[in-house]
Structures are given as structure tokens and as C-alpha cells.
Amino acid sequence: MAQTVVPHFVNDKGVDRIAIGVKEFQCMGAAPPHDHPHVFLDMGHEAQIVCPYCSTLFLHEPSLGATESEPDGCVYVATAPPGAPAA
């Protein structure tokens, strides 16, 4: 079975809208430890969706890649804490 990574987005900048290059993703609200429940959102045939937790409006922008956003810096990338063993 093939695995796909679902991008996670955060709104640490506090903007009202974020353009993204995918239609299926997870919204975290803010980076941990200030995140809300990670909610899976699917735009389906629409070009926008509002997160029910943080009210961020996500707009689908096909010219963006799966790990890009406008404004920049809204894609969450998990990092291991210092001293954690490598996977």
C-alpha cells in the first residue's frame, strides 16, 4: 500500500487567508504547543474552505506545490527535539 503525506498548515502569522497548492490537508491552527486539534479538511470540488476551529480561510492555488503557501511559512514541518534518537 502506498503512503502519502498529508500536508499540515499553521497560521502562526495570524492572517485571515492562506493560499495552498493542495485540496486535502490538515489544519493545526498554530505550531505546537499552541495548536488546535489537527483537523483534516477536503475542499472537494470547491476552491476554498474555512477551518472550523481557527476560522482561517484556505484558498486552493494550483500554481503552488504541496509544500508551499502564500504567505510563505505556513507549512508545518515536524522536527525532532534536540537529543532525540534518529528514526
Score class of each variant (00 low, 15 high):
residue 59 L to E: 12
residue 23 K to E: 15
residue 18 I to F: 10
residue 21 G to I: 09
residue 33 P to M: 05
residue 6 V to H: 00
residue 62 P to H: 05
residue 17 R to K: 15
residue 13 K to W: 04
residue 22 V to P: 05
residue 54 C to D: 14
residue 3 Q to A: 13
residue 53 Y to G: 02
residue 45 H to M: 09
residue 4 T to C: 08
residue 83 G to I: 09
residue 30 A to N: 12
residue 50 V to P: 00
residue 33 P to A: 05
residue 23 K to Q: 15
residue 53 Y to I: 07
residue 4 T to M: 09
residue 19 A to Y: 06
residue 69 S to M: 02
residue 51 C to A: 10
residue 43 M to P: 00
residue 22 V to G: 09
residue 35 D to I: 00
residue 81 P to A: 13
residue 77 V to S: 14
residue 38 H to V: 01
residue 87 A to S: 14
residue 75 V to M: 11
residue 18 I to Q: 08
residue 47 A to S: 06
residue 85 P to Q: 11
residue 21 G to L: 07
residue 10 V to Q: 08
residue 7 P to L: 05
residue 13 K to R: 12
residue 27 C to W: 05
residue 55 S to H: 15
residue 59 L to R: 10
residue 21 G to E: 11
residue 21 G to R: 04
residue 24 E to C: 14
residue 66 A to C: 12
residue 52 P to Q: 08
residue 73 G to E: 09
residue 60 H to R: 03
residue 12 D to Q: 02
residue 2 A to N: 11
residue 46 E to I: 04
residue 71 P to V: 09
residue 44 G to S: 02
residue 80 A to R: 15
residue 50 V to E: 08
residue 18 I to R: 03
residue 68 E to H: 04
residue 14 G to P: 01
residue 36 H to D: 02
residue 73 G to W: 11
residue 29 G to P: 10
residue 10 V to C: 08
residue 16 D to G: 10
residue 45 H to P: 09
residue 56 T to K: 12
residue 18 I to M: 03
residue 26 Q to M: 08
residue 38 H to L: 01
residue 56 T to L: 11
residue 25 F to V: 05
residue 21 G to W: 11
residue 63 S to Q: 04
residue 39 V to D: 07
residue 82 P to D: 15
residue 76 Y to W: 10
residue 49 I to Q: 05
residue 50 V to D: 05
residue 49 I to W: 03
residue 16 D to K: 14
residue 33 P to E: 04
residue 71 P to M: 12
residue 23 K to F: 07
residue 72 D to R: 13
residue 16 D to M: 08
residue 56 T to G: 11
residue 70 E to V: 14
residue 7 P to Y: 04
residue 33 P to H: 01
residue 19 A to F: 07
residue 74 C to Q: 03
residue 77 V to W: 09
residue 7 P to E: 09
residue 17 R to Y: 15
residue 81 P to T: 03
residue 37 P to K: 10
residue 86 A to Y: 01
residue 55 S to W: 14
residue 65 G to Q: 01
residue 60 H to A: 02
residue 15 V to F: 06
